[in-house]
Structure formats: C-alpha cells, structure tokens
Computed example of a mutant assay.
Amino acid sequence: MRYFDNAATTAVRPEVLEAMLPYWTQVYGNPSSHHEIGEQAAHALADARARVAAVLGFRTGDVIFTSGGTEGNNLAVKGIAVAALLGRGARHVITTPIEHESILGSVAALERVHGFEASVVPVDGTGTVDPEAVAAALREDTALISVGYANNEIGTVQDVRAIAAHAGARRVPLHVDAVQAAGWLPLTDLGADALAIAGHKLGAPKGVGAVAVRGRIPLEPLLHGGGQERGRRSGTENVAGAVGLAVALELAEAERIESARRVAVLRDAFVERVLARVPSARLTGHPTMRLPGTASFTFAGTSGEAVLLELERRGVVSSSGSACAAGSDEPSHVLTAVGIDAALAQTAVRFTFPHDLDAALDDVADAVTAAVTVLQSGA
C-alpha cells in the first residue's frame, strides 16, 4: 500500500523514536518534581524548548508545548484576542474563509462567547488572500489577525510577510497557522507574533505540538491549574513528546530545501500526467505558490469518496481533504470559498507526499486514471 495522506499525519521517524524512548523508560519524572529524575526531565524539556525556538525564530521563553496544532491555534487565537479584550476592550478579529477548523471554530467561539466581530477576508479562485484586503479590514479595535501560512487542503501558500508588514504598522498581533508549512517552507523572519506547529506532520508522534507567542503579546490561558509553561498552559508537560518534536523539527529543517525541491519536481510531473490523462480533472489551489508535497484535484462526474475507495483497491491511499472533517456530508468549506460549487467540491481528492519521496509517481497517476475512468463509465 502506498500512502499519500501525509498532510493528515506522518510516520514517526526512527531518530525521533530513539530520542524519545529514555523519557518514557528511564528519565520519566515529572518536570515539576524537585528531585533528580524530575530535574533531569525538566532539563530535557528546557533543551527541547530552546531547540524548537531556534528553528521557529522565536525566543526560548516564547515556546509553549501543546497537544498539537488544534490546541496551539486555539490558544493563540482565543488567548491573544481575549487578552486584548480585557486589556483594551478590543472585540474585532480578522481571518479568511479557508482556515483550518481550529481557527474558524475559535473565531466563532469568540463571537458567541465574548461578543467579538469577525472580518472574514475573501480569497480568490486559487485560495490566495490579498494582503491589501487584510490591511483594509484593520480597525482601531482589531485584536488579532489569524492567517494560515499554507492551506491544508489545496496547498496554497500565503504571503504572510506582506500581511505581517501591515499588521506591524498598526501594532496588531498576527497569528500564523504553520502546521502544514513546517518542514516545507521557511519559518523564520515571517513577522508573525504567534506561530503554531504540530509534531505529527513532521515525523513526531500525534499528541504534541507547540505554539510560539512573542513575550510582548498578552496571552490569556485556556487551561488553568498548576501554572506550567510559565502559567500559559497548565498541565504536566509531555517531556518525551517535546523531545521528539524538537528532533523532528530540526531534521525537517535541515532537509527542507533539498526535499522541497525534489518533491516539487515529482509532484509537478504527477499533476501533468493526471491532467493529461483524465479530461475531467481540475487542479485546485494556486498553480505555483503551493506546498511542494500537495496535489489536489476535483473529478467531475464522480464522488471523492468513491475515487478514494477505487484507489485503495489499487494500493494507493489518499484523502478527500482535511482529516478533521472526515465523515462530514458537507462540501469542503475551502473549496466552496474558492468558488467551486458544492457538487463539484464533493469530488475532491487530495494527494500529499512524504518529505523523502524519491521516485516518479507515474504508476500512481495511472491508478488515478483507472479509478476515475471506472467510476465515470459506471462499470
């Protein structure tokens, strides 16, 4: 079976597993405990924090370990916005309609619970938001801008540096969801005030992530209790997970430029072959400003779920979009936001490739051709 659903999750890298193992079996102390084993765990946690911060381009104390991308996005969006509400009465946030459910759900909660108003800046047919349109949405009471660096369904990459320039000029914090971008795109010097990542997109286990929030940005915690993570995220830290995240992130960053170049070449050949052989195929997302490891299509006259089943019969595993929305009968909010009608959006299939992809995908493109042909013929 060939696995092309890496945007949903990746395999744990052997180097990561090896680095984590001692913190499950030997140095398993609680990092808040004041004895030798606890202090060893605390030292490992501090080291992991510094290593993650270095790759993200933040200070060590800015990094907060979380359970993953969803928690990191929730903490950044709600925590920064509520702190701005408490500090200066700000009740306005800006985002786009193609964000991950953890962003859109957090914004909806701010509206419902705290009376915020949200400006949802539209995107064009490629899924690109105009930084000038974001700037035009800024108000005196804007508490936060939240924009994804790269979309998890169609792979479109945003010009977050341009957005950051507008945000900085108005002294409005910018949160960037970099969950899909990490390992594929540069993370430093983006101008972001908060940035979230998830370990399981990078070769670390599920259940660990990080959000970096610059120290000057007030942040209201979501979890209260023992005051861990400098009072910003209470709960006993996942030391082994933090160590694994640090190792995975460093490895991904060290390999990033070469793997992105190699995978993009193989992806482009795959896309060209699918488009040439399947007349109904339509590539979604930006044609060039997209993640190297993402190729997403609609196939008119089919259903995405049926294509996935046919592909799996042929030894290819992919997805119809975000794993967080799997099983939903609703069309993708990302695809409808870029102007694709609901019926066509239901035919979407997404292929997301591993960082170590090193061979042509002609056989996968042929499997796509066969699967779609069978379904369209009714055979």
Rank of each mutant, 00 (worst) to 15 (best):
M1T: 10
R2G: 07
R2I: 15
N6A: 13
N6C: 14
A7N: 08
A11V: 14
E15D: 14
V16T: 07
Y23G: 03
G29T: 02
H35E: 14
E39M: 15
Q40T: 07
A42M: 04
H43N: 12
R49I: 02
R51Q: 08
L56D: 00
F58R: 02
F65G: 07
G68V: 03
G69A: 01
T70K: 15
L75D: 01
A76W: 05
K78L: 14
V82F: 11
L85A: 14
R88Q: 01
R88D: 07
I94C: 06
A108P: 04
A108R: 15
A108F: 07
A109L: 14
H114S: 09
H114G: 10
F116K: 07
V121C: 02
G127N: 04
V129Y: 05
A133H: 11
A135D: 10
A137P: 11
A137D: 03
L138R: 06
E140V: 14
A143C: 05
S146D: 08
Y149T: 11
N151Q: 06
V157W: 00
V160D: 01
R170N: 13
V172N: 10
A194S: 15
I197S: 11
G199K: 00
K201A: 08
P205F: 13
G209Y: 00
P221Q: 05
E229L: 08
G231Y: 09
T236V: 15
T236L: 13
G241T: 02
A248L: 06
L251T: 12
E255L: 12
E258D: 13
R261Q: 13
A264H: 06
L266F: 02
A269C: 01
F270D: 03
V271L: 08
R273C: 14
V274H: 06
A276I: 01
P279E: 03
A281D: 02
H286N: 05
P292I: 06
F299W: 02
F299E: 01
A306T: 07
L309D: 11
E312N: 10
R314C: 04
V317E: 10
V317Y: 11
S320Q: 10
G321C: 01
A325C: 13
G327M: 05
H333L: 04
T336F: 02
A337Y: 00
A337K: 00
V338K: 03
V338F: 03
A342Y: 04
Q346D: 09
T352N: 05
T352M: 05
A359D: 12
L361N: 09
D362P: 09
V368I: 12
L375H: 09
